[in-house]
Amino acid sequence: MRKKKGFVEILTTFFLLVVMVGVAIAFVGFNKGFLVIQHKVNDELSDFTTSHIVREKLTSCFGIVMDPDNITALKCRDDNLLEVDLLANMIHSFYINQTDHYNCKDMDWEWTAPNAIASAESEYHYYVPIRNKTHNLVCMGELTIRI
């Protein structure tokens, strides 16, 4: 009778240990899932913010620049080159298409960060004004930021 009782205790203990391990595994699994989701959320939030910052930096230039007949580089308000080093640490690349709109020509500009190795994970699209000095127009530009 005593032996039987000891067996039941061991069996119960074993069973409870199995349950505990199962629950622990589930807990770790769930938490890992949660962490993945959180990580992704934080990444997206970060990408949104980055795209906003980059867009603002770029549009502050586009509002002033772009002489489509003489494009050698993206230039900013004060005719200094855009601080590409700064962008290089923030984004993978960006692409601008000046759409065929009224007198504006269909033209493209593309820039990729010098140290970009992996491919971009996110893309953000904006319409931006591009001032055309030659014809005194503000052209429609499609800006694609890849992060």
């Binding site: 949104f48 906003h52 509002g63 319409y127």
Partner: peptide, 27 residues
């Protein structure tokens, strides 16, 4: 937060697009 940010982002995106549209010049 993400959903809110997404909504904010979409609104902000539209705002940027519309503001840009208002700046485009007719030929």
């Amino acid at each position: 937060r993400l959903e809110q940010k997404q909504m904010f982002f979409l609104h902000d995106n539209l705002e940027v697009d519309v503001d840009s549209f208002l700046l485009f010049t007719e030929n």
